[in-house]
Write a protein that binds this DNA or RNA. Structure first.
Length: 552
RNA sequence: UGGGUUAUGGUGUAAUGGUAGCACAACAGAUUUUGAUUCUGUUUGUCUAGGUUCGAAUCCUAGUAACCCAACCA
């Protein structure tokens, strides 16, 4: 019995178009501008566009919207491709808007010939002034009524490099009184004497977004061109160009972009974080970029699950970061190997355990039997977490305390007989005794304890650096009001533990390997690791109802 | 009376005139060699005011609120 999942509004449109025979199959595209790294918001669009084609048996192109040579770079192209593949999607064709520069130029000429475009010599200030405001109509430019011949020649001279940047632009001739600002004779070509990452110095005029995007869609015969809500007003222009140019009628549909708590999503702000050193780079694990999330230890499946759960609609949304973390834990819980690591060590000595003896304890690698088992050395001196002991135990405390019994995971039940303090009054060692008849897997003592804690044998422990990441911002909506989003940066977003004690089996961890450090959270080996020094990033903590109950 | 888009629990998202459902979060309990996982249960909602109808989240009217549009960015 499969519950029928309801369709989102775009799936409804697609099904209608398929059922009516308007299209035999669908063709979507993902159109990033290569001027930054992809972030979690993009993954919503990626899952939507690629997901639609997979679900309905169509195709999805990857098309780089590279019409602004000033901000675009090959580095970004490469990272975008890597991130899409990592998310689990493969595109049908890889295209660039710059592939169409010739065609786009001829489209512009066609518009001029039809009397629907003109060259304007006004400065950008003059153009802005004549544009009017949303509530007042604009006024015609003095250059609006040049002849076709003059426009044709001027445009060709623009292309030939005869003019300086800003000296002339090509504008569509539509309606300066339109209530839609975008229809008030929008600029469609501007002069930029700049090097383009693909076409080099071939061009010195570049089409604007509105004169590249829809036409590219049309050239590729995209059936459903899906973009975010801020482009709603562009749709009228999008359709106008298709009509006047008499080209394939791609249709644009808009959905609401992803907003998430404790996160900024604009490329401008992310670039600022990188350039001003608030993070170490685009792939810093605190960044909401795909590469940052990957480095932090996220799985592609968890991100896809998240995109599936948040849905697709047209209303503004503000998704709880907790939902992303839920999807992550859901996936990692099934797949991550369990290991024992002590982050904040306290020595524990088992007085009745023989000196120098090592016992190998059997441990399951995870809840899934397919993950197998491993052996862990156990000996007289162990490291445990400082916060697993309380001299004066709180109510409902069931970890270690004077006289208390706990199970050492995969090993014995122990009793705390006493402890040592240094001159400053800090507890520096616990003295315990173990119950030999309670060995894990062979315990017929009938003794039960409420607490189980993790440990690492001091004689066998290796060390590693552990980076504990917390959210980058300490307010829910750092982009909220007038103040600078940077004032909301969490100063404690990274805490580094230089030498945590790890169990020996972890020594072979490879970059991007994911683990659950028992009772501590999920961790992932970082690319900064060297043969001499392993480094782990905390991906996400485990849910901790005890910490919550005690008020953190 | 610039134009456009959107309003369903704390957060998302369904219900397409006929029992307001699901997920996350929150809360309570059971199980547990991870205070994890798992399982059970509980709380919380149709923007407002009118109208149509046997019956309205859904249709009509009038409001209200939020977001987008005045880059030679995309």
């Amino acid at each position: 019995m499969s519950e029928e999942k309801s369709l989102n509004f775009i799936e409804e449109i697609v099904e209608t178009d398929l059922a009516s025979g308007k299209y035999q199959s669908i063709h979507t595209r993902f159109p990033p501008e290569p001027n930054g790294y992809l972030h979690i918001g993009h993954s919503k669009s990626i899952c939507l566009n690629f997901g639609l084609a997979i679900k309905y048996g169509g195709k999805t192109n990857l098309r780089f919207d590279d019409t602004n040579p000033i901000t675009e770079e090959t580095e970004y192209v490469d990272s975008i491709k890597e991130d899409i593949r990592w998310l689990g999607f493969e595109w049908h064709n890889e295209y660039y808007a710059s592939d169409y520069f010739d065609q786009l130029y001829h489209f512009a000429v066609k518009l001029i010939q039809k009397g629907l475009a003109y060259v304007d010599d006004s400065t950008s200030e003059e153009i802005a002034l004549l544009k009017g405001t949303p509530s007042e109509p604009g006024k015609d430019s003095p250059f609006r009524n040049r002849t076709r011949e003059e426009n044709l020649q001027l445009f060709e001279e623009m292309k030939a490099g005869k003019y300086k940047e800003g000296e002339k632009v090509l504008r569509a001739k539509i309606n300066m009184a339109s209530p839609n600002m975008l229809m008030r004779d929008p600029l469609i070509y501007r002069i930029k004497h700049a090097h383009h990452h693909r076409t080099g110095n071939t061009w010195c005029i570049y089409p604007m977004y509105d004169f590249a995007h829809g036409q590219s869609d049309s050239i590729e015969k995209i059936t459903h061109s899906i973009c975010t809500l801020e482009f709603v007003a562009h749709r009228e222009l999008y359709d106008w160009f298709i009509e006047k140019l008499e080209i394939f009628p791609s249709r644009q549909y808009e959905f609401a972009r992803l907003n998430m708590t404790y996160t900024v999503m604009s490329k401008r702000k992310l670039l600022k974080l990188v350039n001003e050193g608030f993070v170490t780079g685009w792939d810093d694990p605190r960044m909401p970029t795909i590469s940052g999330l990957r480095r932090k230890g996220f799985t592609p499946a968890s991100i896809r699950m998240f995109c599936d759960k948040i849905g697709v609609a047209k209303r503004e949304n503000f998704i709880d970061l907790g939902l992303l973390e839920f999807c992550l834990r859901e996936d990692l819980n099934m797949t991550a190997k369990r290991v024992m690591v002590v982050l904040d060590p306290l020595k524990l000595v088992i007085s009745n355990f023989p000196d120098g003896k090592t016992e190998m304890m059997l441990a399951e690698n995870g809840p899934d039997p397919a993950l197998g088992t491993r052996e862990i050395p156990f000996s007289k001196e162990l490291w445990i977490e400082k916060d697993d002991f309380m001299e004066l135990p709180a109510k409902k405390w069931f970890r270690l305390a004077p006289g208390a019994l706990v199970r050492l995971k995969n090993a014995y039940i122990i009793r705390c007989d006493g402890f040592l303090k240094n001159d400053a009054g800090d507890i520096i060692e616990l003295q315990c005794s173990y119950l030999p008849e309670t060995r894990s897997g062979a315990d017929e003592s009938g003794i039960t304890v409420k607490g189980t804690i993790h440990w690492v044998s001091a004689a066998h422990a290796k060390t590693a650096e552990v980076r504990l990441y917390d959210r980058l911002f300490n307010t829910e909506n750092p982009s909220a009001e007038d103040d600078d989003f940077r004032t909301h940066i969490n100063p404690d977003s990274l805490q580094i533990i230089n030498s945590a004690f790890i169990e020996p089996s972890l020594e072979t961890a490879k970059i991007e390997d994911r683990y659950q450090f028992l009772r501590k959270g999920y961790f992932c080996a970082d690319k900064d690791s060297t043969p001499e020094k392993l480094i782990f990033n905390r991906t996400v903590t485990l849910k901790d109802t005890w910490a919550k109950a005690t008020g953190k």
